[in-house]
Simulated scan of single mutants.
Amino acid sequence: MSGIAAEAGVSGGTLYRYFKNKEDLLESLGNHFVMRLRGTLQGAIAEQPNPADRLPLVVDIVLRYWQENPAAVQLGQLEPDFVIDYIKQVTPQWSAAIHDAVEPVLADSPAVQLGLATPDEIVNLIVRMAFSHYFLPVNDYRELRDLLLALGSSAGLDPKNGRIGSGRKAAS
């Protein structure tokens, strides 16, 4: 805690006023990252409510998340044991946020309607892909995003009212 306080430029006593120990501070920081993801998803969906854009939008945000939140990546470098435990604990929250964002679109996709996949299975895949990207980032996340969207499109994850992979790039 003293190292964290020094890095933050506050006294140890100030830090202990808000957090009882390092684990409490790290848990609060982790919760902050989840709330930030949820807010980003909700804001983007409000700006682009078209169901045909939903899955590309969500995949783009999830992959871009680490790039836009370097503190989360730095936390993983400084506290790898915490991050592994954190991922196990926070996966249900990430899944819920992503499920809320994509479920309305996935319910109308041929893959779900034919019983090839459930919305929960698709959300689980997106969450696993996001955490995989955290540990094994690519130079340009957009290439991974476009590949995942093309695979999703070929697997029938397009909503009935539009095509996700219509030859255009997903949201940048």
Rank of each mutant, 00 (worst) to 15 (best):
G39L: 06
P56R: 02
D53S: 10
N161Q: 08
G76I: 02
V10K: 04
G43L: 10
E7N: 09
E121K: 12
P70C: 06
L26G: 06
V59S: 07
D100G: 06
I126C: 03
G13E: 13
N124L: 15
P104E: 00
T40A: 00
I164C: 07
F82D: 00
G156A: 10
Y134R: 04
R54P: 04
V90S: 15
K169G: 01
A44M: 12
S154Y: 06
M35C: 07
A96C: 01
L78S: 13
A72T: 05
P104Q: 00
R142H: 12
S153P: 00
G30H: 06
H133V: 13
L116K: 14
Q74G: 08
E27I: 13
L26I: 04
L151W: 11
P159Y: 02
S28H: 14
F19S: 03
N21V: 05
V105H: 01
W66L: 01
W94Q: 02
G30L: 03
A170E: 08
R38V: 00
L25K: 09
A46R: 13
I87F: 06
L25R: 13
L125E: 14
Y134H: 04
L75W: 10
G162V: 10
N31M: 11
V123S: 04
D146A: 07
A96F: 01
P137A: 07
P137L: 09
I4M: 04
A150T: 13
L78E: 11
A130D: 09
E27M: 12
S109L: 04
V34H: 06
K160M: 13
E27C: 04
G167F: 05
G3K: 00
T14L: 15
S166C: 10
I4E: 05
Q67R: 15
P110W: 03
P56I: 07
E7T: 14
R36N: 07
